[in-house]
Protein backbone atom coordinates (compact mmCIF):
# COMPACT_ATOMS: atom_id res chain seq x y z
CA UNK A 1 0.00 0.00 0.00
CA UNK A 2 2.78 2.45 0.93
CA UNK A 3 4.76 1.62 -2.18
CA UNK A 4 1.58 2.10 -4.18
CA UNK A 5 1.16 5.57 -2.69
CA UNK A 6 4.80 6.47 -3.37
CA UNK A 7 4.56 5.20 -6.93
CA UNK A 8 1.46 7.26 -7.53
CA UNK A 9 3.01 10.39 -6.01
CA UNK A 10 6.06 9.99 -8.25
CA UNK A 11 3.71 9.64 -11.21
CA UNK A 12 2.37 13.11 -10.48
CA UNK A 13 5.71 14.76 -11.35
CA UNK A 14 5.78 14.10 -15.12
CA UNK A 15 2.13 15.14 -15.37
CA UNK A 16 2.85 18.50 -13.79
CA UNK A 17 5.94 19.05 -15.97
CA UNK A 18 3.87 18.36 -19.09
CA UNK A 19 1.09 20.64 -17.90
CA UNK A 20 3.50 23.47 -17.18
CA UNK A 21 4.85 23.28 -20.73
CA UNK A 22 1.39 23.15 -22.31
CA UNK A 23 0.04 25.99 -20.19
CA UNK A 24 3.06 28.13 -20.93
CA UNK A 25 2.67 27.53 -24.64
CA UNK A 26 -1.07 27.96 -24.85
CA UNK A 27 -1.11 31.18 -22.88
CA UNK A 28 1.29 32.64 -25.43
CA UNK A 29 -1.00 31.53 -28.26
CA UNK A 30 -3.68 33.93 -26.98
CA UNK A 31 -4.00 36.81 -29.42
CA UNK A 32 -3.08 40.22 -28.02
CA UNK A 33 0.10 41.70 -26.56
CA UNK A 34 0.12 42.08 -22.76
CA UNK A 35 2.64 44.88 -22.91
CA UNK A 36 0.45 46.97 -25.19
CA UNK A 37 -2.64 46.26 -23.11
CA UNK A 38 -0.82 47.41 -19.98
CA UNK A 39 0.65 50.48 -21.57
CA UNK A 40 -2.73 51.74 -22.66
CA UNK A 41 -3.87 53.08 -26.03
CA UNK A 42 -1.91 56.36 -25.78
CA UNK A 43 1.51 54.80 -25.11
CA UNK A 44 4.47 55.18 -27.48
CA UNK A 45 6.36 52.30 -29.05
CA UNK A 46 9.25 53.00 -26.67
CA UNK A 47 6.99 52.70 -23.63
CA UNK A 48 5.57 49.41 -24.88
CA UNK A 49 9.06 48.11 -25.55
CA UNK A 50 10.12 49.14 -22.05
CA UNK A 51 7.22 47.28 -20.49
CA UNK A 52 7.90 44.29 -22.70
CA UNK A 53 11.51 44.26 -21.49
CA UNK A 54 10.31 44.71 -17.94
CA UNK A 55 8.07 41.61 -18.28
CA UNK A 56 10.92 39.70 -20.00
CA UNK A 57 8.68 39.23 -23.02
CA UNK A 58 11.49 40.26 -25.36
CA UNK A 59 13.57 37.20 -24.51
CA UNK A 60 13.53 33.91 -26.46
CA UNK A 61 10.62 31.72 -25.46
CA UNK A 62 12.71 28.91 -23.97
CA UNK A 63 14.48 31.39 -21.72
CA UNK A 64 11.11 32.67 -20.60
CA UNK A 65 10.06 29.11 -19.85
CA UNK A 66 13.31 28.41 -18.04
CA UNK A 67 12.78 31.45 -15.85
CA UNK A 68 9.16 30.39 -15.24
CA UNK A 69 10.10 26.80 -14.41
CA UNK A 70 12.86 27.92 -12.04
CA UNK A 71 10.31 30.16 -10.36
CA UNK A 72 7.88 27.27 -9.98
CA UNK A 73 10.54 25.11 -8.34
CA UNK A 74 11.54 27.82 -5.88
CA UNK A 75 7.94 28.76 -5.14
CA UNK A 76 8.19 32.12 -6.86
CA UNK A 77 5.23 32.58 -9.16
CA UNK A 78 6.22 36.06 -10.27
CA UNK A 79 4.15 39.19 -10.20
CA UNK A 80 0.86 39.92 -11.83
CA UNK A 81 1.45 42.12 -14.85
CA UNK A 82 -1.86 43.81 -14.14
CA UNK A 83 -1.68 44.70 -10.44
CA UNK A 84 2.05 44.30 -9.86
CA UNK A 85 1.19 42.24 -6.80
CA UNK A 86 2.93 38.88 -6.26
CA UNK A 87 0.85 36.18 -7.98
CA UNK A 88 0.87 34.12 -4.79
CA UNK A 89 -0.83 36.95 -2.92
CA UNK A 90 -3.42 37.43 -5.67
CA UNK A 91 -4.33 33.77 -5.81
CA UNK A 92 -4.04 33.23 -2.08
CA UNK A 93 -6.70 35.84 -1.38
CA UNK A 94 -9.10 34.18 -3.80
CA UNK A 95 -8.37 30.56 -3.01
CA UNK A 96 -10.07 30.21 0.35
CA UNK A 97 -13.48 31.61 -0.72
CA UNK A 98 -13.53 29.19 -3.67
CA UNK A 99 -12.39 26.27 -1.53
CA UNK A 100 -15.04 26.84 1.14
CA UNK A 101 -17.78 27.38 -1.40
CA UNK A 102 -16.77 24.15 -3.14
CA UNK A 103 -16.66 22.19 0.11
CA UNK A 104 -20.11 23.34 1.20
CA UNK A 105 -21.63 22.74 -2.22
CA UNK A 106 -20.02 19.31 -2.57
CA UNK A 107 -20.97 18.25 0.95
CA UNK A 108 -24.69 18.70 0.57
CA UNK A 109 -24.72 17.67 -3.10
CA UNK A 110 -22.92 14.37 -2.42
CA UNK A 111 -25.21 13.39 0.40
CA UNK A 112 -28.39 14.43 -1.42
CA UNK A 113 -27.30 13.05 -4.80
CA UNK A 114 -26.19 9.64 -3.56
CA UNK A 115 -29.20 9.18 -1.29
CA UNK A 116 -31.57 10.05 -4.12
CA UNK A 117 -29.68 7.76 -6.47
CA UNK A 118 -29.86 4.76 -4.14
CA UNK A 119 -33.55 5.31 -3.39
CA UNK A 120 -34.26 5.59 -7.11
CA UNK A 121 -32.28 2.43 -7.77
CA UNK A 122 -34.15 0.50 -5.09
CA UNK A 123 -37.52 1.73 -6.37
CA UNK A 124 -36.55 1.54 -10.02
CA UNK A 125 -39.42 1.87 -12.46
CA UNK A 126 -41.86 3.06 -9.80
CA UNK A 127 -43.13 6.61 -9.34
CA UNK A 128 -40.51 7.51 -6.71
CA UNK A 129 -37.79 6.70 -9.21
CA UNK A 130 -39.45 8.62 -12.00
CA UNK A 131 -40.06 11.68 -9.85
CA UNK A 132 -36.45 11.70 -8.65
CA UNK A 133 -35.11 11.39 -12.17
CA UNK A 134 -37.34 14.22 -13.44
CA UNK A 135 -35.89 16.34 -10.64
CA UNK A 136 -32.37 15.26 -11.55
CA UNK A 137 -32.77 16.14 -15.21
CA UNK A 138 -34.19 19.52 -14.23
CA UNK A 139 -31.27 20.06 -11.89
CA UNK A 140 -28.78 19.37 -14.65
CA UNK A 141 -30.52 21.52 -17.23
CA UNK A 142 -31.50 24.49 -15.07
CA UNK A 143 -29.04 27.35 -15.82
CA UNK A 144 -27.22 28.28 -12.63
CA UNK A 145 -27.34 32.05 -13.16
CA UNK A 146 -31.12 31.83 -13.44
CA UNK A 147 -31.45 29.63 -10.39
CA UNK A 148 -29.14 32.01 -8.47
CA UNK A 149 -31.19 35.05 -9.43
CA UNK A 150 -34.43 33.30 -8.47
CA UNK A 151 -33.02 32.38 -5.07
CA UNK A 152 -31.77 35.93 -4.50
CA UNK A 153 -35.16 37.28 -5.48
CA UNK A 154 -36.98 34.99 -3.07
CA UNK A 155 -34.70 34.74 -0.03
CA UNK A 156 -32.90 38.08 -0.16
CA UNK A 157 -35.22 40.55 -1.83
CA UNK A 158 -38.68 39.32 -0.80
CA UNK A 159 -38.03 37.52 2.48
CA UNK A 160 -34.88 39.39 3.42
CA UNK A 161 -33.43 36.34 5.18
CA UNK A 162 -30.07 36.12 3.45
CA UNK A 163 -27.62 38.59 1.86
CA UNK A 164 -27.77 39.05 -1.92
CA UNK A 165 -24.05 38.52 -2.35
CA UNK A 166 -20.54 39.02 -1.06
CA UNK A 167 -18.30 36.99 1.22
CA UNK A 168 -18.16 36.96 5.00
CA UNK A 169 -20.57 35.29 7.40
CA UNK A 170 -22.15 31.85 7.11
CA UNK A 171 -25.28 33.45 5.69
CA UNK A 172 -23.26 34.47 2.65
CA UNK A 173 -22.56 30.82 1.91
CA UNK A 174 -26.11 29.50 1.82
CA UNK A 175 -27.37 30.67 -1.55
CA UNK A 176 -24.13 30.29 -3.56
CA UNK A 177 -23.45 26.77 -2.31
CA UNK A 178 -27.07 25.81 -2.89
CA UNK A 179 -26.92 27.12 -6.45
CA UNK A 180 -23.56 25.54 -7.15
CA UNK A 181 -24.51 22.15 -5.72
CA UNK A 182 -27.76 21.57 -7.60
CA UNK A 183 -26.16 20.40 -10.81
CA UNK A 184 -23.65 18.23 -8.92
CA UNK A 185 -26.38 16.61 -6.84
CA UNK A 186 -28.38 15.92 -9.99
CA UNK A 187 -25.43 14.36 -11.83
CA UNK A 188 -24.52 12.23 -8.83
CA UNK A 189 -28.11 11.07 -8.39
CA UNK A 190 -28.26 9.82 -11.95
CA UNK A 191 -24.82 8.30 -11.73
CA UNK A 192 -25.48 6.54 -8.45
CA UNK A 193 -28.76 5.19 -9.74
CA UNK A 194 -27.31 3.66 -12.88
CA UNK A 195 -24.34 2.17 -11.00
CA UNK A 196 -26.68 0.78 -8.37
CA UNK A 197 -29.06 -0.75 -10.90
CA UNK A 198 -26.15 -2.34 -12.73
CA UNK A 199 -24.68 -3.91 -9.59
CA UNK A 200 -28.15 -4.99 -8.41
CA UNK A 201 -28.34 -7.43 -11.32
CA UNK A 202 -24.97 -9.03 -10.52
CA UNK A 203 -24.80 -12.67 -9.52
CA UNK A 204 -23.32 -11.99 -6.09
CA UNK A 205 -26.36 -9.92 -5.13
CA UNK A 206 -28.48 -12.95 -5.95
CA UNK A 207 -26.09 -15.04 -3.85
CA UNK A 208 -26.62 -12.68 -0.92
CA UNK A 209 -30.39 -13.10 -1.18
CA UNK A 210 -29.99 -16.85 -1.57
CA UNK A 211 -28.32 -17.07 1.83
CA UNK A 212 -31.14 -15.12 3.42
CA UNK A 213 -29.49 -11.73 3.92
CA UNK A 214 -32.10 -9.09 4.83
CA UNK A 215 -32.90 -6.64 2.05
CA UNK A 216 -31.39 -3.67 3.93
CA UNK A 217 -28.00 -5.42 4.08
CA UNK A 218 -28.33 -6.62 0.49
CA UNK A 219 -28.57 -2.97 -0.50
CA UNK A 220 -25.91 -1.51 1.79
CA UNK A 221 -23.29 -4.22 2.16
CA UNK A 222 -23.53 -6.02 -1.14
CA UNK A 223 -24.90 -3.61 -3.71
CA UNK A 224 -23.96 -0.08 -2.66
CA UNK A 225 -20.40 -0.87 -1.72
CA UNK A 226 -19.73 -2.21 -5.20
CA UNK A 227 -21.69 0.57 -6.87
CA UNK A 228 -19.64 3.25 -5.11
CA UNK A 229 -16.58 2.87 -7.32
CA UNK A 230 -17.81 4.80 -10.40
CA UNK A 231 -19.68 7.25 -8.16
CA UNK A 232 -16.47 8.16 -6.34
CA UNK A 233 -14.72 8.84 -9.63
CA UNK A 234 -17.55 11.15 -10.65
CA UNK A 235 -17.54 12.90 -7.28
CA UNK A 236 -13.82 13.52 -7.61
CA UNK A 237 -14.25 14.97 -11.09
CA UNK A 238 -17.03 17.28 -9.94
CA UNK A 239 -14.95 18.37 -6.97
CA UNK A 240 -12.12 19.26 -9.31
CA UNK A 241 -14.39 21.21 -11.61
CA UNK A 242 -15.84 23.27 -8.77
CA UNK A 243 -12.39 24.00 -7.32
CA UNK A 244 -11.56 25.62 -10.63
CA UNK A 245 -13.93 28.36 -9.62
CA UNK A 246 -17.48 28.70 -10.81
CA UNK A 247 -17.42 31.85 -12.93
CA UNK A 248 -21.17 32.19 -13.28
CA UNK A 249 -22.10 31.62 -9.64
CA UNK A 250 -19.23 33.82 -8.44
CA UNK A 251 -20.43 36.60 -10.70
CA UNK A 252 -24.09 36.32 -9.66
CA UNK A 253 -23.23 36.40 -5.96
CA UNK A 254 -20.29 38.83 -6.22
CA UNK A 255 -18.03 36.12 -4.78
CA UNK A 256 -14.29 36.89 -4.62
CA UNK A 257 -13.19 33.57 -6.04
CA UNK A 258 -10.71 32.07 -8.48
CA UNK A 259 -13.15 31.86 -11.37
CA UNK A 260 -13.60 35.57 -11.63
CA UNK A 261 -9.86 36.14 -11.15
CA UNK A 262 -9.18 33.87 -14.12
CA UNK A 263 -11.64 35.70 -16.38
CA UNK A 264 -10.16 39.06 -15.43
CA UNK A 265 -6.62 37.80 -15.97
CA UNK A 266 -7.44 36.45 -19.41
CA UNK A 267 -8.91 39.75 -20.55
CA UNK A 268 -5.72 41.54 -19.43
CA UNK A 269 -3.42 38.84 -20.82
CA UNK A 270 -1.96 38.60 -17.33
CA UNK A 271 0.30 35.64 -18.23
CA UNK A 272 1.75 34.95 -14.77
CA UNK A 273 -1.66 34.79 -13.08
CA UNK A 274 -3.24 32.64 -15.83
CA UNK A 275 -0.29 30.23 -15.72
CA UNK A 276 -0.35 30.02 -11.96
CA UNK A 277 -4.09 29.44 -11.80
CA UNK A 278 -4.05 26.69 -14.39
CA UNK A 279 -1.08 25.04 -12.69
CA UNK A 280 -3.04 25.19 -9.46
CA UNK A 281 -6.11 23.61 -11.09
CA UNK A 282 -4.00 20.85 -12.58
CA UNK A 283 -2.36 20.17 -9.25
CA UNK A 284 -5.78 20.02 -7.59
CA UNK A 285 -7.06 17.64 -10.22
CA UNK A 286 -4.06 15.37 -9.95
CA UNK A 287 -4.31 15.29 -6.17
CA UNK A 288 -8.04 14.63 -6.25
CA UNK A 289 -7.49 11.80 -8.70
CA UNK A 290 -4.85 10.41 -6.42
CA UNK A 291 -7.30 10.63 -3.52
CA UNK A 292 -9.97 8.89 -5.60
CA UNK A 293 -7.57 6.10 -6.47
CA UNK A 294 -6.63 5.65 -2.82
CA UNK A 295 -10.30 5.42 -1.83
CA UNK A 296 -10.66 2.90 -4.65
CA UNK A 297 -7.88 0.84 -3.18
CA UNK A 298 -9.57 0.91 0.21
CA UNK A 299 -12.90 -0.24 -1.21
CA UNK A 300 -11.66 -2.62 -3.85
CA UNK A 301 -9.18 -5.24 -2.63
CA UNK A 302 -8.26 -6.17 -6.17
CA UNK A 303 -6.47 -2.83 -6.58
CA UNK A 304 -4.92 -2.98 -3.12
CA UNK A 305 -3.29 -6.33 -3.73
CA UNK A 306 -1.90 -5.63 -7.16
Amino acid sequence: MLSYLLRRLLGVVPVLVAVSIFVFGFVRLLPGDPARLMAGPEASEADVAAIRHDLSLDQPIWEQYGRYARGLLTGDLGRSSRTRQPVATEIGARFMPTLWLTIFAMAWATVAGMTTGVLSGVKRGRWQDQAAMVLAVSGISFPSFWLGLLLIDLFSVRLGWLPTGGYGTWQHFVLPSLTLGVAVAAVLARFTRSAFVEVASEDFVRTARAKGVPERLVILRHTLRNALLPVITMTGLQFGFLLGGAVVVETVFAWPGLGRLLVDSVSYRDYPVIQAEIMLFSLEFVLINLGVDLIYAVINPEIRFR
Binding site: E202, D203, R206, H222, N226, N300, P301
Partner: peptide, 9 residues
Protein backbone atom coordinates in the same frame (compact mmCIF):
# COMPACT_ATOMS: atom_id res chain seq x y z
CA UNK B 1 -16.38 -16.03 -10.87
CA UNK B 2 -19.29 -13.63 -10.41
CA UNK B 3 -21.33 -15.24 -7.66
CA UNK B 4 -19.08 -14.06 -4.84
CA UNK B 5 -18.94 -10.44 -3.72
CA UNK B 6 -15.61 -9.08 -4.99
CA UNK B 7 -15.06 -6.61 -2.14
CA UNK B 8 -15.64 -8.93 0.83
CA UNK B 9 -13.30 -11.61 2.12
Amino acid sequence: MTSLNPVLT
